[in-house]
């Protein structure tokens, strides 16, 4: 096999596919034409209807709020962190760094990092007390707050951005997870956290399952000194665990 020739063939395939892109969509991206205009033109040319529909969905303008929220988070990602005290901890499957993780970690690299090993002390089962946390939902690109400042609405399958503000500072790096509750039922939610700085506001987003029933729900967030148990939504409050809640509404996709 001539690998050089194969690499050139692959490169040519990439170029041809790039060149074969419908240029009208660039007009949409640049604001020169609307999605509807381009769809009408391509439909008249007999383009595949399913492909047209998909591309129209993808190319539909993003709301101004999306750009604004994005810009705000980019600015925040450049701000240096302050408290850097990192006790040892077990990895938690509920923790995943959010999309801004890289930026915030980069900011953290600008300051001196002090790693404090856990002090050996008397064995105890007493959980480390955590302060109360105020939970709030932040409307983002895919969430809408009701006009009367009522509960945040989110489409099934969308994400809810939340923040947890501690009443007082503390040094423990907490574990955070979330559940959707209604009546006697609850569902664990996939949570993506921005990098957590102990004692500072915790920010993250929870993905609402696409098959979650429509209507009013309660978002339960858990801030805990310990990792989540096997049944993360079947828990009780305690001194080492804070469980703030807030309502939200699931709307059709």
């Amino acid at each position: 096999m001539d690998e050089e020739a194969l690499a050139r063939e692959l490169a040519q395939l990439e170029r041809q596919q790039r060149d074969a892109r419908e240029p009208a969509w660039d007009d949409v991206a640049n604001g020169r034409r609307s999605v509807d205009e381009v769809v009408a033109e391509l439909r008249a040319r007999g383009e595949d209807e399913a492909e047209l529909s998909r591309m129209a969905e993808l190319m539909a303008p993003l709301p101004g709020a999306f750009d604004d929220a994005l810009a705000e988070r980019l600015v925040e990602s450049l701000e240096p962190a302050e408290v850097i005290a990192m006790p040892e901890r077990e990895p938690v499957r509920w923790h995943r760094l959010g999309w801004a993780a890289a930026g915030l970690l980069a900011a953290a690299a600008l300051v001196v990092v002090v790693v404090l090993p856990r002090e050996p002390g008397p064995a105890t089962d007493e959980p480390t007390p955590l302060p109360e946390h105020a939970l709030s939902l932040r409307p983002g690109a895919s969430e809408l707050r009701a006009a009367d400042d009522g509960p945040v609405s989110v489409a099934a399958g969308g994400t809810l951005r939340f923040s947890l503000r501690p009443a007082t500072s503390y040094a423990l790096e907490p574990h955070v997870w979330a559940c959707a509750e209604r009546g006697g039922t609850s569902r664990p939610l996939e949570v993506v956290l921005d990098p957590v700085v102990p004692g500072r506001v915790i920010e993250g987003r929870a993905t609402i399952p696409a098959d979650l029933a429509l209507g009013e729900w309660t978002l339960l967030t858990v801030v805990d000194g310990q990792p989540p148990p096997a049944e993360p939504c079947a828990i009780e409050p305690g001194p080492g665990r804070r469980m703030p809640r807030v309502g939200f509404v699931v709307t059709p996709r």
């Binding site: 969905e57 999306f66 988070r73 980019l74 990602s77 999309w99 890289a102 930026g103 895919s142 399958g157």
Partner: peptide, 20 residues
């Protein structure tokens, strides 16, 4: 697909802004 797009747009910007 739209949700995927929005996530990837955000991730693209996060990459550009990463590491200062």
């Amino acid at each position: 697909a739209r949700q995927e797009l929005e996530d990837l747009v955000q991730e693209a910007f996060a990459s550009l802004w990463a590491d200062g």
